[in-house]
Design a protein around this nucleic acid. Structure first.
Lengths: 162, 162
DNA sequence: AAATTTCCCGACTTGAAAAGTCGACAAAGA
DNA sequence: TCTTTGTCGACTTTTCAAGTCGGGAAATTT
């Protein structure tokens, strides 16, 4: 129905989320983030390294090294992350419409361009309206909910006894 | 920034759009659609064939054969097409959240699920609110605009004379 | 009826990203 | 100086969208 967000982006988001969670505890090691968020460590390495160039996160090397957020979580939006990862020119569809050729009605705009723009705008709005702090808040809220009303075991695990 | 809509989906949409344009003129051949919308004919064949199973379009074989819309354009939304092509289970991100494992906070929902849902909903709203007739209307509107104020030749073509 | 034109359908190929890995190096602390 | 961490570029693997192909089945024309 809707195109899948690349794993790389999801990982990046989860990593930043994890750093936000541990804010104030000093640098967090790649391996710890990887374990907590279930991300291949060596791949996460690449991602964090790139993310660093955005200025959103910083790092420290050596024994007590690791990564940490450079700004408070309520000043970082999901949009900041996505925008940095994919560059400013990433569009939902029909780049051909804004670019040249390959779309039959290139030049100014085709019958579809209005719709694609609306879709883009819709997605961007959500991304830009969601801060890392919001995600953090969701998290504690969900945890509290689970404490009050613990989740049932999954059907698979439960019916297992035979 | 935002994941690209698959070409397959774009082609499907453009094809339906073309059929809508030619409604009432009898069946339109694959090759004609392909030419008008600049789509590889043999690939379009596959797409139309699949689309047929949605009931949105019908076909006729033989000499005077081709494809045609089975319902008026204002009763078909872009969402109908997308939903059929990708199945009902296609989500923007983190299928892991609604499914099992691979996302650290699987089960009921993670900190991100609310956001992913909002994104999905946002995209879907646009798709569901856009009928093929809307696109048709855009088209004639754009054509009229161009007639009144014809587009400038592109910089590339223009500076060519040397 | 034969020839032609079209859609039908499954299998197949391909090429480019995405996803993930590796080895060697650089800094920082113990 | 030894270990632990991040840094960096190159590399491999996997996946999947995108596109192709050959043979068949229905309809239409001659």
């Amino acid at each position: 129905m809707v195109p899948m967000t690349p794993k790389k982006n999801q990982y990046a988001l989860r990593a930043v989320f994890e750093l936000a969670k541990r804010r104030g505890e000093g640098p967090t090691k790649i391996s710890d983030i990887a374990r907590a968020q279930v991300i291949p460590a060596r791949f996460l390495e690449v991602i964090l390294n790139k993310l660093k160039r955005s200025g959103l996160i910083e790092s420290k090397r050596g024994f007590t090294g690791g990564y940490f957020l450079s700004r408070p979580p309520d000043t970082i939006t999901v949009g900041d992350i996505m925008r940095f990862l994919d560059g400013p020119t990433a569009a939902m569809a029909c780049a051909a419409c804004t670019e040249t050729s390959s779309c039959p009605s290139h030049r100014r705009g085709c019958a579809f361009s209005a719709m694609w723009n609306r879709v883009n705008q819709a997605v961007l709005s959500v991304y830009n309206d969601t801060t890392i702090q919001d995600l953090l808040d969701n998290d504690v809220h969900l945890k509290a909910q689970r404490r009050r009303r613990p989740p049932r075991a999954s059907a698979r695990t439960e019916g297992q006894r035979l």
